[in-house]
Write a protein that binds this DNA or RNA. Sequence first.
RNA 1: GAGGGUGUAGCUCAGUCGGCAGAGCAUCUGCCUUUUAAGCAGGAGGUCGGAGGUUCGAUCCCUCCCACCCUCACCA
Length: 485
Amino acid sequence: MEELRDHLRHRREKLQKLKELGINPYPYKFEKTHDSREILSNFEALEGSKQRVKVAGRMVSCRPHGKTIFAHLQDGHGKIQIYLRKDDLGEEKFKLFELTDLGDFLGVTGEVFKTKAGEVTVMVSDWQFLTKSLQPLPEKWHGLADKELRYRKRYLDLIANDEVREVFIRRNRIISTIRSFLDSRGFLEVETPILQPLYGGAFAEPFETHHNALDMKLYLRIADELYLKRLLVGGYERVYEFCKDFRNEGLDRFHNPEFSMVELYQAYADYNDIMELLEGMLVKVAEEVLGTTSFQYREHQVDLSPPFKRMPFFDAIEQATGIKAKNLSLEELKRAAEEAGVDTEQKKTWGKMLETIFDSLVQPTLIRPTFIIDYPVELSPLAKRNRQDESVSERFELFIATLEIGNAFSELNDPLEQRARLEQQRELSGTDEALDEDFIQALEVGMPPCGGLGFGVDRLVMLFTNSRSIRDVIFFPTMRPESRS
RNA sequence: GAGGGUGUAGCUCAGUCGGCAGAGCAUCUGCCUUUUAAGCAGGAGGUCGGAGGUUCGAUCCCUCCCACCCUCACCA
């Protein structure tokens, strides 16, 4: 038998004693009448009524005073103090409390009162074990601070840090607001394959897997764009999907290998309509979740009042850098970029160069919500050419407080041009992946004109929860496995 | 992939210009019938991330390795 540290051994011993006493430390259920929040908000009524409440939760603090005990139970909505007295409980039930530990789930019955110090408290007339905890809790005052532990053992993070629980509740409200916003506008929520025989809809390294029965390679999707477009071909006019996408790239505070996106497609609309849709959606989310459209994200004050600023890609570059990039050759562009202090090593194409200039010199300046519109065609193989200027595409990206929030096009639906653009893209990126012929064929069947949008849910949650890292808004971020070093 | 930082008790952190390893919380024992970071008294708890090296002596200095964080690179 392995040696257990004292704090683990003591809990095991208490568990053993409970079993010897014929007490089940892991009973099946407990009929709660109230949660902590209900008791606090209904205190006036409960205090007068002499009604007995039954509450349950994890014991997170305990202050014994000889023949009385104060403790706090934490449940799904907060904490409630409980008060036990030997006189009320009797010798046996009071002594049994010695077998509790911080972290145990307890169920208590009692009347509600207010202590001398003014805290609403349950005067316990009976209590029972609901679950015995065999591990110690993080420190009560400082919580759990070690980031690695917080990410690896999120359950401890959630127990110890109230604000973390709040972040994920807010994440849920953001998602449900988006869903109801789109539903109310006639969008149909759909599901498309995560396992795809060909990957597409974005440029990124995919994760590969293998299907045994079919003996075939499959990819985890990097985007669901090409499947949603097939659904427009099929006749649905407005579709969206909350999709987990997977990209086999580096990790940093804006990127996790698996992440959440929403993609949506609206028939008979163009990117201007999508801009208005996105403005409306963000305002709605802000009002639902924050109660205001003006808020702080890190060092930036954000105001989501529409309409957001719109600025053409090349104008944005010129305004931020003075570079008139549109008519420059690759060489001229490279020289201008280097003069501006941009590392242009490894940037082999005109488009890549532009992108680098934009990312390093323009994006950091985009504080107020701004649609950057009309990207170079080379960077946007799935977007229609601009109706006034063939050299740029009808595409926008939305930036808020320097965060890249969303990406949208007037979707290219000319099958011949689409094939040509994808083939050109393959040459530029040097990949030998097969074209998705079925997608092209779907376009040949005919996809109505449409506007499409993709936005990162995690980034949006970061924005609305003032989170620095994507790992703070994903319960279980991807981590290297713990190894015994 | 490059540079910087961090790693000490279950948790939060000190510390040793190289000489017996520290505090608070948690835990254990005793006292305490309205406390709330409860209090008082006492105790236990350590491979100082791992492996080498230098040294009379290494948690501390050096090398390598591991994990995480930050910045950059990569990433429509």
